[in-house]
Protein backbone atom coordinates (compact mmCIF):
# COMPACT_ATOMS: atom_id res chain seq x y z
CA UNK A 1 0.00 0.00 0.00
CA UNK A 2 1.14 3.51 -0.80
CA UNK A 3 1.95 5.95 1.99
CA UNK A 4 -0.49 8.83 2.12
CA UNK A 5 1.78 11.57 0.73
CA UNK A 6 2.60 9.37 -2.23
CA UNK A 7 -1.11 8.84 -2.77
CA UNK A 8 -1.68 12.57 -2.86
CA UNK A 9 0.97 13.08 -5.51
CA UNK A 10 -0.44 10.20 -7.53
CA UNK A 11 -3.87 11.78 -7.22
CA UNK A 12 -2.69 15.06 -8.76
CA UNK A 13 -0.98 13.20 -11.56
CA UNK A 14 -3.78 10.78 -12.28
CA UNK A 15 -6.44 11.19 -14.94
CA UNK A 16 -9.22 11.08 -12.34
CA UNK A 17 -7.46 13.38 -9.88
CA UNK A 18 -7.02 16.00 -12.58
CA UNK A 19 -10.59 15.67 -13.69
CA UNK A 20 -11.82 16.14 -10.12
CA UNK A 21 -9.62 19.23 -9.79
CA UNK A 22 -11.03 20.58 -13.07
CA UNK A 23 -14.51 20.11 -11.64
CA UNK A 24 -13.70 21.70 -8.29
CA UNK A 25 -12.13 24.77 -9.92
CA UNK A 26 -15.15 24.82 -12.24
CA UNK A 27 -17.51 24.84 -9.26
CA UNK A 28 -15.63 27.74 -7.76
CA UNK A 29 -15.73 29.68 -11.04
CA UNK A 30 -19.47 29.05 -11.43
CA UNK A 31 -20.06 30.25 -7.89
CA UNK A 32 -17.98 33.33 -8.67
CA UNK A 33 -19.96 33.89 -11.85
CA UNK A 34 -23.26 33.73 -9.98
CA UNK A 35 -22.16 36.35 -7.44
CA UNK A 36 -20.61 38.54 -10.17
CA UNK A 37 -23.89 38.42 -12.02
CA UNK A 38 -25.93 39.24 -8.94
CA UNK A 39 -23.82 42.32 -8.21
CA UNK A 40 -23.81 43.49 -11.82
CA UNK A 41 -27.55 43.08 -12.01
CA UNK A 42 -27.83 45.56 -9.14
CA UNK A 43 -26.51 48.19 -11.56
CA UNK A 44 -29.74 47.80 -13.52
CA UNK A 45 -31.89 48.13 -10.42
CA UNK A 46 -30.16 50.76 -8.36
CA UNK A 47 -27.03 52.84 -8.95
CA UNK A 48 -26.64 53.37 -5.21
CA UNK A 49 -26.71 49.75 -4.11
CA UNK A 50 -24.44 48.75 -6.99
CA UNK A 51 -21.93 51.35 -5.83
CA UNK A 52 -22.01 50.32 -2.19
CA UNK A 53 -21.74 46.58 -2.91
CA UNK A 54 -18.93 47.21 -5.41
CA UNK A 55 -17.09 49.28 -2.85
CA UNK A 56 -17.49 46.53 -0.26
CA UNK A 57 -16.23 43.85 -2.68
CA UNK A 58 -13.36 46.05 -3.82
CA UNK A 59 -12.09 46.99 -0.38
CA UNK A 60 -13.02 44.16 2.00
CA UNK A 61 -9.70 42.58 3.02
CA UNK A 62 -11.09 39.05 3.14
CA UNK A 63 -12.36 39.32 -0.43
CA UNK A 64 -9.35 41.20 -1.73
CA UNK A 65 -6.56 39.24 -0.07
CA UNK A 66 -8.13 35.79 0.40
CA UNK A 67 -10.83 35.17 -2.21
CA UNK A 68 -9.31 37.18 -5.06
CA UNK A 69 -6.04 35.22 -5.10
CA UNK A 70 -8.05 31.97 -4.94
CA UNK A 71 -10.11 33.17 -7.88
CA UNK A 72 -7.03 34.10 -9.86
CA UNK A 73 -5.49 30.74 -9.11
CA UNK A 74 -8.72 28.93 -10.09
CA UNK A 75 -8.87 30.78 -13.42
CA UNK A 76 -5.24 30.04 -14.26
CA UNK A 77 -5.47 26.44 -13.08
CA UNK A 78 -8.73 25.70 -14.90
CA UNK A 79 -7.45 27.16 -18.15
CA UNK A 80 -3.96 25.71 -18.15
CA UNK A 81 -5.07 22.27 -16.97
CA UNK A 82 -7.88 22.28 -19.54
CA UNK A 83 -5.49 23.07 -22.38
CA UNK A 84 -2.89 20.61 -21.08
CA UNK A 85 -5.44 17.79 -20.89
CA UNK A 86 -6.74 18.59 -24.36
CA UNK A 87 -3.20 18.24 -25.75
CA UNK A 88 -2.74 14.93 -23.91
CA UNK A 89 -6.11 13.69 -25.11
CA UNK A 90 -5.32 14.55 -28.72
CA UNK A 91 -2.09 12.59 -28.38
CA UNK A 92 -3.94 9.61 -26.87
CA UNK A 93 -6.08 9.41 -30.02
CA UNK A 94 -2.99 8.27 -31.91
CA UNK A 95 -1.31 9.43 -35.09
CA UNK A 96 -3.79 8.04 -37.62
CA UNK A 97 -7.17 9.73 -37.67
CA UNK A 98 -10.42 8.11 -38.69
CA UNK A 99 -11.10 8.66 -42.38
CA UNK A 100 -14.79 8.69 -41.56
CA UNK A 101 -15.92 9.87 -38.13
CA UNK A 102 -19.34 10.98 -36.94
CA UNK A 103 -18.81 12.42 -33.47
CA UNK A 104 -22.11 14.27 -33.69
CA UNK A 105 -24.07 11.03 -33.56
CA UNK A 106 -23.14 10.24 -29.97
CA UNK A 107 -22.06 13.41 -28.18
CA UNK A 108 -23.34 16.99 -28.19
CA UNK A 109 -21.25 19.74 -29.81
CA UNK A 110 -20.84 21.65 -26.55
CA UNK A 111 -19.25 18.65 -24.83
CA UNK A 112 -16.75 18.10 -27.64
CA UNK A 113 -15.59 21.70 -27.95
CA UNK A 114 -14.95 22.75 -24.38
CA UNK A 115 -11.38 23.76 -25.17
CA UNK A 116 -12.50 26.10 -27.96
CA UNK A 117 -15.31 27.73 -26.00
CA UNK A 118 -12.84 27.91 -23.11
CA UNK A 119 -10.20 29.67 -25.21
CA UNK A 120 -12.84 32.11 -26.48
CA UNK A 121 -13.63 32.91 -22.84
CA UNK A 122 -9.89 33.32 -22.13
CA UNK A 123 -9.60 35.86 -24.95
CA UNK A 124 -12.57 37.71 -23.55
CA UNK A 125 -10.98 37.67 -20.09
CA UNK A 126 -8.00 39.51 -21.57
CA UNK A 127 -10.27 42.35 -22.68
CA UNK A 128 -12.25 42.20 -19.46
CA UNK A 129 -9.12 42.48 -17.31
CA UNK A 130 -7.91 45.37 -19.46
CA UNK A 131 -11.28 47.09 -19.07
CA UNK A 132 -11.91 46.65 -15.37
CA UNK A 133 -9.57 44.55 -13.30
CA UNK A 134 -6.22 46.13 -14.17
CA UNK A 135 -7.46 49.76 -13.88
CA UNK A 136 -9.01 48.76 -10.54
CA UNK A 137 -5.73 47.29 -9.30
CA UNK A 138 -3.83 50.36 -10.50
CA UNK A 139 -6.19 52.78 -8.75
CA UNK A 140 -6.20 50.85 -5.51
CA UNK A 141 -2.77 49.36 -5.13
CA UNK A 142 -0.48 51.48 -7.32
CA UNK A 143 -2.01 54.90 -6.78
CA UNK A 144 -3.17 53.86 -3.32
CA UNK A 145 -6.65 55.32 -3.68
CA UNK A 146 -8.92 53.06 -1.64
CA UNK A 147 -11.76 55.58 -1.31
CA UNK A 148 -13.67 54.37 -4.37
CA UNK A 149 -14.56 58.02 -4.99
CA UNK A 150 -14.29 60.17 -8.08
CA UNK A 151 -15.34 63.82 -8.18
CA UNK A 152 -17.29 63.56 -4.96
CA UNK A 153 -19.23 60.34 -5.58
CA UNK A 154 -18.60 56.59 -5.98
CA UNK A 155 -16.94 55.86 -9.31
CA UNK A 156 -18.04 52.23 -9.89
CA UNK A 157 -21.37 52.80 -11.63
CA UNK A 158 -19.95 55.49 -13.89
CA UNK A 159 -17.01 53.29 -14.86
CA UNK A 160 -19.33 50.43 -15.71
CA UNK A 161 -21.65 52.58 -17.81
CA UNK A 162 -18.71 54.26 -19.55
CA UNK A 163 -17.39 50.92 -20.81
CA UNK A 164 -20.70 50.00 -22.38
CA UNK A 165 -20.95 53.04 -24.62
CA UNK A 166 -18.81 51.55 -27.36
CA UNK A 167 -20.98 49.34 -29.60
CA UNK A 168 -18.00 47.21 -30.65
CA UNK A 169 -17.15 46.43 -27.05
CA UNK A 170 -20.80 45.68 -26.26
CA UNK A 171 -20.83 43.33 -29.26
CA UNK A 172 -17.68 41.53 -28.09
CA UNK A 173 -19.12 41.16 -24.60
CA UNK A 174 -22.36 39.69 -25.95
CA UNK A 175 -20.47 37.25 -28.16
CA UNK A 176 -18.24 36.18 -25.27
CA UNK A 177 -21.28 35.42 -23.15
CA UNK A 178 -22.61 33.16 -25.88
CA UNK A 179 -19.36 31.18 -25.64
CA UNK A 180 -19.73 31.18 -21.87
CA UNK A 181 -23.23 29.74 -22.22
CA UNK A 182 -21.97 26.99 -24.54
CA UNK A 183 -19.17 26.20 -22.09
CA UNK A 184 -21.57 26.04 -19.14
CA UNK A 185 -24.12 23.91 -20.98
CA UNK A 186 -21.65 21.06 -20.70
CA UNK A 187 -19.55 22.26 -17.77
CA UNK A 188 -22.24 22.57 -15.15
CA UNK A 189 -23.57 19.02 -15.25
CA UNK A 190 -20.16 17.60 -16.15
CA UNK A 191 -18.63 18.92 -12.90
CA UNK A 192 -21.07 16.90 -10.85
CA UNK A 193 -20.30 13.74 -12.81
CA UNK A 194 -16.57 14.36 -12.31
CA UNK A 195 -16.81 14.58 -8.54
CA UNK A 196 -18.77 11.35 -8.53
CA UNK A 197 -22.29 12.65 -8.24
CA UNK A 198 -24.61 10.80 -10.59
CA UNK A 199 -27.92 9.50 -9.33
CA UNK A 200 -31.06 8.46 -11.12
CA UNK A 201 -33.02 10.53 -8.69
CA UNK A 202 -31.23 13.88 -8.79
CA UNK A 203 -29.16 13.99 -11.97
CA UNK A 204 -32.03 14.68 -14.42
CA UNK A 205 -33.13 17.68 -12.32
CA UNK A 206 -29.56 18.81 -11.90
CA UNK A 207 -29.04 18.74 -15.66
CA UNK A 208 -32.15 20.85 -16.15
CA UNK A 209 -30.97 23.33 -13.56
CA UNK A 210 -27.54 23.34 -15.24
CA UNK A 211 -29.09 24.26 -18.58
CA UNK A 212 -31.09 26.98 -16.87
CA UNK A 213 -27.95 28.35 -15.18
CA UNK A 214 -25.96 28.13 -18.42
CA UNK A 215 -28.52 30.18 -20.33
CA UNK A 216 -29.89 32.59 -17.77
CA UNK A 217 -26.59 33.85 -16.34
CA UNK A 218 -24.93 34.68 -19.68
CA UNK A 219 -28.22 36.06 -21.02
CA UNK A 220 -28.43 38.22 -17.92
CA UNK A 221 -24.92 39.56 -18.52
CA UNK A 222 -25.89 40.33 -22.12
CA UNK A 223 -28.98 42.10 -20.86
CA UNK A 224 -26.90 44.24 -18.47
CA UNK A 225 -24.47 45.26 -21.23
CA UNK A 226 -27.30 46.09 -23.64
CA UNK A 227 -29.27 47.86 -20.93
CA UNK A 228 -26.46 50.32 -20.21
CA UNK A 229 -25.75 50.77 -23.89
CA UNK A 230 -29.35 51.42 -24.87
CA UNK A 231 -30.29 53.54 -21.86
CA UNK A 232 -27.46 55.94 -22.60
CA UNK A 233 -28.08 56.29 -26.31
CA UNK A 234 -28.62 59.90 -27.23
Amino acid sequence: MCPQSENNILFMKSSIGRKILMALSGFFLMFFLAQHFTINFLSVLSEESFNSVSHFMGTNPLIQYALQPVLLFAVIFHLSMGIYLEIKNKAARGAVKYAMNKPGTNAPWVSRNMVYTGIAILLFLGLHFYDFWIPELVTKYVEGDMTGMHAGSFRYYEELVAKFQDPVRVGIYCLAFIFLALHLLHGFQSSFQSVGFNSNRYTPGLKKFGNFFAIVIPLGFIFIALFHYVSHLN
Binding site: K19, A107, P108
Partner: peptide, 25 residues
Protein backbone atom coordinates in the same frame (compact mmCIF):
# COMPACT_ATOMS: atom_id res chain seq x y z
CA UNK B 1 -9.30 1.46 -7.98
CA UNK B 2 -5.85 2.95 -7.37
CA UNK B 3 -4.07 0.19 -9.26
CA UNK B 4 -6.51 -0.05 -12.17
CA UNK B 5 -6.56 3.71 -12.73
CA UNK B 6 -2.78 3.83 -12.45
CA UNK B 7 -2.46 1.11 -15.09
CA UNK B 8 -5.04 2.85 -17.29
CA UNK B 9 -2.96 6.05 -17.18
CA UNK B 10 0.26 4.12 -17.89
CA UNK B 11 -1.28 2.56 -20.99
CA UNK B 12 -1.70 6.02 -22.49
CA UNK B 13 -5.47 6.33 -22.57
CA UNK B 14 -6.81 9.89 -22.55
CA UNK B 15 -8.77 11.76 -19.94
CA UNK B 16 -12.54 11.59 -19.69
CA UNK B 17 -14.38 14.85 -20.41
CA UNK B 18 -17.88 13.47 -19.88
CA UNK B 19 -19.05 13.80 -23.48
CA UNK B 20 -21.06 10.59 -23.02
CA UNK B 21 -20.17 9.22 -26.47
CA UNK B 22 -18.96 5.95 -24.89
CA UNK B 23 -22.30 5.26 -23.26
CA UNK B 24 -24.13 5.78 -26.56
CA UNK B 25 -21.80 3.50 -28.53
Amino acid sequence: VLNMVHQMDLEGFGNCTNTGACEVE
